[in-house]
Computed example of a mutant assay.
Amino acid sequence: MSAGPLTADLFESTADTKPSQEAIAEGAVLLRGFARPFEAELIADLHAIVAQAPFRHMVTPGGHQMSVAMTNCGSAGWVTDRSGYRYDSNDPESAKPWPAMPSSFFRLAAQAAAQAGFNDFAPDACLINRYQPGAKMSLHQDKDELDFGAPIVSVSLGLPAIFLWGGLKRSDKPRRFPLKHGDIVAWGGPARLVFHGVAPLADGEHALLGRQRINLTFRKAR
């Protein structure tokens, strides 16, 4: 994973931007720039997580290798292989527990959820996706959790991306929302099982994270 230096000047320039909020749908909110004040902590903690549980390209039950590289932190980690999709307490590659969720991750997720109208969100899982140029995420629902009462909080870091927001059926035509470094999408309630995805990532260079986009997806898995 390549990353540029975390300089004070870079941090100040990104932290200046005031966050704004826009509704995507009933139960879904886009918080622009909300994660920027947290970025130095997030990126430092991200490096520590990846040192313990490196990114890997998981395989779907159908045998397809995902273009997005993944890892996890928290008491539960989302995994996929030929046997199916599921949450597991241990990293299947090391047989060790996933790294603990850093306090910076937990605080950001809880504060973003509250800002979006979902109070008392206490995620126990954070799926960390690494998109490199050309990588994408097909339309899907987050439905491997035991309780759909908690929201999903999705944090964008690094290169900009196009977020695809569909409907409750896979065939519903998705709307396209540009996401930049620091943007967060939070959804729950009537929007909890909406199909969503990410269009193929365009090439570029981000000052802090290089040629990649990192997505932190917080969930209450158990």
Rank of each mutant, 00 (worst) to 15 (best):
D81H: 09
L30G: 01
K173V: 15
C73M: 09
G167Q: 02
G84I: 06
F218Q: 05
F148D: 15
Q52P: 06
D120T: 10
G210N: 01
T17D: 13
A25Y: 04
E22D: 13
A110R: 15
A207S: 08
G210I: 01
W187C: 05
E26G: 12
A69W: 03
S94N: 05
V153T: 14
L139F: 09
Q111Y: 09
V50K: 03
P160S: 03
Q65H: 12
L31Y: 03
A35G: 01
R107P: 10
A51Q: 14
D172I: 08
A23P: 11
A116D: 06
R222I: 14
S138W: 11
L168S: 13
L10Y: 11
S20A: 11
P97H: 10
V50D: 03
E22K: 14
R176V: 01
A100Y: 08
D120F: 14
D142S: 04
Y131G: 00
F163W: 01
A113W: 07
F177I: 12
D183W: 00
C73V: 09
S75Q: 14
D203F: 05
T7V: 05
A199T: 04
L193P: 09
W187R: 03
S83I: 11
D124H: 03
F177G: 01
P200Q: 04
L179G: 00
L108Y: 02
A221F: 11
A116C: 10
A199N: 06
R219K: 13
R219V: 10
R32Y: 01
R170G: 11
I128Q: 00
L127D: 02
Q132W: 06
K143H: 14
R32T: 03
P99Q: 07
D203L: 03
A150Y: 08
F11C: 11
L139E: 08
A112V: 07
A191P: 03
E145Q: 09
I214Q: 00
A114Y: 10
G149F: 07
A112Y: 05
M70C: 11
P97W: 07
A161C: 01
K169Y: 12
M58E: 15
Y87F: 12
Q52K: 13
H196S: 06
Q52R: 13
D144S: 15
G62I: 06
A202F: 02
P190K: 07
A53C: 04
Q212S: 08
G77I: 07
G188Y: 04
F106D: 14
A44H: 11
G166E: 05
V59L: 09
P19V: 06
R130V: 02
R36S: 02
K169N: 15
D91H: 07
N119S: 13
A186R: 03
V29S: 08
V198P: 00
W165K: 03
T17F: 10
A191R: 03
L46F: 10
S89E: 15
E205A: 05
V155A: 02
L201G: 00
S83G: 10
N129W: 01
G158C: 00
D81T: 09
G84D: 06
L30R: 06
D88Q: 15
D172H: 13
C73Y: 04
D88E: 15
T14H: 12
F148Q: 12
M66C: 07
I184F: 02
H206Q: 01
